[in-house]
C-alpha cells in the first residue's frame, strides 16, 4: 500500500445545519486551508443534521467540530474556527520559510 503523503491534510468539518456558527466555521476553515494548505488538503464538510448517524459514529457533541484525520495524529477542534493561530498550531502547519 502506498504510504500517504505526510504533507497532505485530510480534514472533516462537522456542522449542524445552516447555523451562523456553521457558516462561519466553513468560511473560516476554507480560508485557512486556502491560505496555508493550498493544493494539499481535502476538506469535507459534513452536515450532521442531515446525517445524524455520523454524529454518533464520530462522537460529535459540540458543533462545529473539525477533525484532522491526516496527517496523524488525529486531532479535534471545536468552535467556529475563528482562532486561526490556534488552529494552525493545532494542525502543525509549517509555513514556508519558518
Amino acid at each position: 500500500m502506498k504510504e500517504p503523503d505526510p504533507s497532505r491534510y485530510v480534514l472533516r468539518l462537522f456542522v449542524t445545519g445552516q447555523s451562523v456558527l456553521s457558516n462561519r466555521a466553513i468560511v473560516n476553515i476554507r480560508k485557512i486551508c486556502e491560505e496555508n494548505l493550498a493544493g494539499r488538503y481535502e476538506l469535507e464538510v459534513v452536515d450532521v443534521s442531515k446525517h445524524p448517524e455520523i454524529a454518533v459514529a464520530e462522537q460529535i457533541v459540540a458543533a462545529p467540530t473539525l477533525i484532522k484525520q491526516l496527517p496523524e495524529p488525529l486531532r479535534r477542534f471545536i468552535g467556529d474556527m475563528s482562532q486561526t493561530e490556534r488552529i494552525l498550531v493545532g494542525l502543525d502547519v509549517k509555513k514556508a520559510g519558518t
Binding site: 449542524t16 456558527l21 445524524p52 467540530t65
Partner: peptide
Amino acid sequence: FEETGEYDLQGLFIRLGH
C-alpha cells in the same frame, strides 16, 4: 480537542433527536 471559538452543543441535540 482544542477550542477555537464559539460553539454550541447542537451535535448532542442532533444525536438525541436522531
